Amino acid sequence: DDGFLSFAGIGGWDPQVLVGQRVCLIGRTGEVSGVIGRKPIHSLEEDERKKASQIKELWIDIGAKNRDEAAERVSVGSVGVLEAPIRDLPNGRLVARGIDDRIGAFVVLEALRLLAQERPEATVAAVATCQEEITMAGAKTSAFSFDPQVALAVDVTVATDHPSADKKQYGDVKLGEGPVLSRGAANSPVVHTMLKEIAEQEQIPYSVDISPRRTGTDADVIHVSRGGVATGVVSIPCRYLHSPNEMIALEDVEHTVKLIASFVRVLSAETDFIPR
């Protein structure tokens, strides 16, 4: 109403990081810029200041004077992203929006580049899946179509090397100390052991996290595709997940690329993924 846009989040957003952010929407004829609005602190009652924001209390202001003008520029269901530039920080830190999980796609492409220099025995398929945050539709359809014997889901995971982190619940995960290997119900114990052994042989630092029920990655649907797929999860530690400024260490990216390429190179027709 009055030219302001109501909106919903796609995936798991913390509304606290949205207030005041600039956004870029895909409009009817191109990109449309806007700002996520909320009542200013001057107008908040004492009890309102103590409450966390909810998306239903926020809006997007695209500078439209009224509803009709807004409707000329965007349609119901238009999607958008937060506007946040990429920044290089000291000690090889990279800050950007959407690192979760654009960096996973980059890692897979870099691993393919290494494998192209020395062709592996295994046939390799790489997929940048869609909708992992909401339906995992991309992973479901891809796993069904390819029907692989083994799969690796490449994602990011919560780093706990910052103030107030709960290491007892989420583990001791630090930037710069290599990829994180998931162990749990959705992970093949054979694949997990292979990844650890390869990391140790190649002197790649790594840590292990525990996912007793679900991993929160595409592995959750890949491992039950068709008759089952031996699945592993390799993750890059990331600070400030689901915010406009997610942070990773570039050395973790390099180590993850090397680990995945090395894993693929040891696969053969004789590789047995049945736990013994």
Rank of each mutant, 00 (worst) to 15 (best):
H162P: 00
G228F: 02
L241W: 04
D166V: 00
D155R: 02
E45P: 11
G30V: 04
N245H: 14
T29Q: 12
V173Y: 12
L259R: 05
F146P: 10
A105L: 07
K39T: 14
P244W: 01
G138R: 01
L267E: 06
H162F: 14
D218E: 05
V208C: 13
S142M: 07
S142V: 03
Q203S: 13
L44E: 06
P40Q: 09
V266Y: 08
I41T: 11
D252F: 07
R213W: 14
R73H: 09
G20M: 10
F146N: 13
V76L: 11
N187P: 12
R22M: 07
L152W: 14
T231L: 06
E110K: 03
T215Y: 08
R49H: 10
A64V: 10
R102N: 07
L18Q: 00
S225R: 01
S53F: 09
E83M: 14
G20A: 10
D218Y: 01
D161H: 12
V23I: 10
L195S: 07
D272E: 12
S53G: 05
Q169I: 07
P237K: 11
V124T: 06
D155G: 05
Q149C: 12
G27T: 02
R73L: 09
P40W: 03
G98V: 01
L152N: 11
V180F: 07
E72V: 01
R113D: 15
G37C: 02
E132T: 04
G92C: 04
S75I: 09
E72L: 10
P120N: 05
S225Y: 02
Y240C: 04
P237L: 05
E132G: 04
Q149T: 15
L25E: 00
S78V: 02
C130T: 14
A219T: 03
S164I: 08
E197W: 04
L82H: 04
R49A: 07
S211P: 03
V221L: 09
N187E: 12
G98D: 11
R119P: 02
D220E: 08
Y240R: 06
A151V: 09
L250H: 15
E133I: 00
K196F: 00
K50A: 15
R38M: 06
E118D: 15
K140Q: 12
G80M: 09
G227R: 07
G37S: 04
A125R: 09
G80Y: 04
P15D: 01
V19P: 01
P85N: 08
A116F: 12
M194H: 13
M247I: 10
E72P: 00
G27P: 03
